[in-house]
């Protein structure tokens, strides 16, 4: 398809463009039975930002990101990916979007190289381009030696990295990563981090969810705090944390930080 055209267009784009959001969510709502998982959620992710979504377990992070990437149909609301209404025209919206979902299987009876190649061809990237990019990506992620091994025999960290390669092979302009550092060792984590940092430096936009505050604070320039399906605070990092650390601000916003003095004596 027109993957090549977009790459060129991206390189000529000014680094600090007008703040048209790369991802805009409007009134996203999802209900599972009696539980309102995401409650009319609005969110703007500025283009070119490194955006962290933090929230406690069960806050609706994964549900929100699934609805923002076309994996889960929202009950109400809209998601705009680089200006395209994702649910009105899924194919156009998804073409410039790279997704790393959390906790889903890969086609693990393929080798690492076959899987990345498959991911590229599925998106209509020409064969010769895929043949050039796939080994390069695997090499950058330290998977060159495992390129010919079936993904089913990969470790958790290797699986995460090959899934990231799949999300990058078509050179997306927006990357949505759900818990990209879960089950990843520090060395692989550093590899992924530097790859993402250079991606953002090149004008790409990254949205990632995590509950490791420290990591989000170090990598991201924008954050959103989500709890109970709503955005509690969003903006650039310094505005949100307002003087303290992100963790203090987070516990402050979400609540539930409990003083344990005096209880659980039997554990000591």
């Amino acid at each position: 398809m027109d993957d090549q055209g977009e790459t060129v267009q991206h390189q000529t784009q000014p680094p600090a463009g007008p703040p048209a959001p790369a991802l805009a969510l409007r009134g996203l709502t999802k209900r599972f039975g009696d539980k309102l998982a995401v409650d009319a959620l609005d969110l703007d992710v500025p283009a070119g930002s490194f955006f962290g979504v933090v929230g406690p377990n069960g806050a609706g992070k994964t549900t929100t990101l699934s609805m923002a990437t076309g994996l889960l149909r929202p009950d109400a609301g809209r998601a705009f990916v680089l200006g395209a209404d994702l649910w009105a025209d899924p194919i156009a919206g998804k073409r410039r979007l790279g997704v790393l979902p959390d906790g889903v299987r890969l086609f693990d009876r393929l080798t690492g190289l076959e899987l990345v190649r498959y991911s590229g061809l599925l998106r209509g990237v020409p064969r010769d381009v895929v043949e050039q990019r796939a080994p390069e990506l695997l090499d950058a992620l330290g998977l060159a030696d495992a390129a010919g091994t079936l993904v089913v025999d990969y470790s958790a960290g290797m699986t995460k990295k090959v899934a990231l390669a799949c999300a990058l092979v078509h050179a997306p302009r927006l990357l949505v990563l759900d818990e990209p550092f879960e089950a990843v060792d520090p060395v692989s984590g550093a590899t992924i981090r530097s790859l993402l940092t250079s991606y953002v430096a090149g004008g790409g936009t990254v949205v990632l969810s995590s509950h490791v505050m420290d990591l989000v604070e170090r990598m991201c320039d924008h954050v959103a705090v989500i709890s109970a399906g709503r955005v509690l605070a969003t903006g650039d990092l310094d505005t949100v944390r307002g003087g303290g650390t992100l963790e203090e601000r987070f516990v402050d916003l979400v609540g539930g930080g409990r003083d344990l003095t005096g209880s659980l004596d039997w554990l000591r």
Partner: peptide
Amino acid sequence: YDHSAFTLHVTAGVR
């Protein structure tokens, strides 16, 4: 039979 690996087809926007 793809199980959740079918996610790739959905995110890739395969027609």
